[in-house]
């Protein structure tokens, strides 16, 4: 990375949104995440990078307890969002997921109309008082998802009929519609072409104003472009975590340097 701009990028907030301490994840007998501690700041884009199978997606899925849907997965340790332990017995994972939205690797619009895709979350959580209210939420979400202009004339068309990049922005808009505080993105651009990727990246940068965004990516350029903080995972360990500019220009761990220069991974 020869982009010196990176070092100058400022972090707009210093409040910790998510604090994870000594997190261990097991898939059956496999120890997938080993003792990871990380603090994720509010209104910041945090990138998780690392070679395939290093545990970055697994760790991401711990943050909204999506791993609960996998039978053999076991999570230990302490993860707090706004100081609240999300693995506490009193926490309802369903409510948690409304607060911590997620965008997946492959665009997965529901086989419903564009409108119904966006309205899905608000309807479930009762966010709209009436139809007009719902219309407002749908329009606002689509605008924030930077896709309103493309779909405003065909809100009743199926969401599956959109192009890949549009589908992914629709999914981001769908996640925004439930008004989450944290947005988790699991390789959101890996199924998209460069133009769609650029659109989604621009969108992520805009989302930073309102949300804490955590993005898993295989593309180091993408991490450098969109994030303020970067965490490097390797073989289930969190190797290094810090300012994006510093990670890419002056990593302190030799393994990070090897990875970003392409020697391991």
């Amino acid at each position: 990375m020869d982009d010196l701009r990176l070092t100058e990028r400022d972090v707009t907030s210093q409040d910790a949104k998510i604090a994870a301490k000594n997190v261990q994840v097991y898939y059956g007998d496999t120890h997938a995440i080993k003792d990871v501690s990380v603090e994720i700041k509010d209104k910041t884009v945090t990138a998780f990078i690392g070679p395939s199978g290093c545990g970055k997606s697994t760790f991401l899925r711990c943050l909204n307890r999506m791993n609960d849907t996998i039978d053999i997965c076991r999570v230990e340790g302490d993860i707090r969002i706004d100081g609240e332990d999300i693995y506490d017995k009193r926490i309802d994972p369903v409510q948690l997921r409304a607060k911590v939205g997620m965008v997946f690797q492959k665009p997965n619009p529901f086989p419903k109309s564009i409108y119904d895709n966006i309205a899905y979350g608000p309807r479930i959580h009762g966010l709209a008082k009436n139809k007009a209210d719902l219309d407002v939420i749908v329009e606002k979400s689509l605008r924030r998802g930077a896709i309103w202009d493309e779909v405003k004339d065909r809100l009743n068309a199926p969401g599956t009929g959109l192009s890949g990049g549009q589908q992914q922005r629709l999914c981001i808009a769908r996640a925004i519609a439930t008004e989450p505080e944290v947005l988790l993105m699991d390789e959101p651009c890996s199924a998209l072409d460069p133009i769609a990727t650029a659109q989604v990246e621009e969108l992520i940068d805009e989302l930073r104003e309102n949300y804490s965004v955590v993005i898993v990516t295989h593309s180091m350029q993408q991490a450098a472009r969109v994030s303020q903080k970067t965490a490097f995972f390797h073989l289930g360990n969190l190797v290094e975590y810090g300012e994006t500019g510093q990670i890419f220009t002056n990593p302190s761990d030799p393994r990070t340097e090897s990875y970003i220069t392409g020697r391991i991974g």
Binding site: N64, M66, T69, V94, Q95, L96, R97, A98, K99, G101, M102, V103, F104, K106, N108, P109, F110, P111, Y120, G121, I124, H125, C171, R174, A175, T178
Partner: peptide, 15 residues
């Protein structure tokens, strides 16, 4: 039905 559909719905906080 692809698991991605279910994940998408769970990810939005649906039961």
């Amino acid at each position: 039905v692809p698991q991605a559909m279910r994940d998408g719905s769970y990810g939005l906080g649906a039961t």
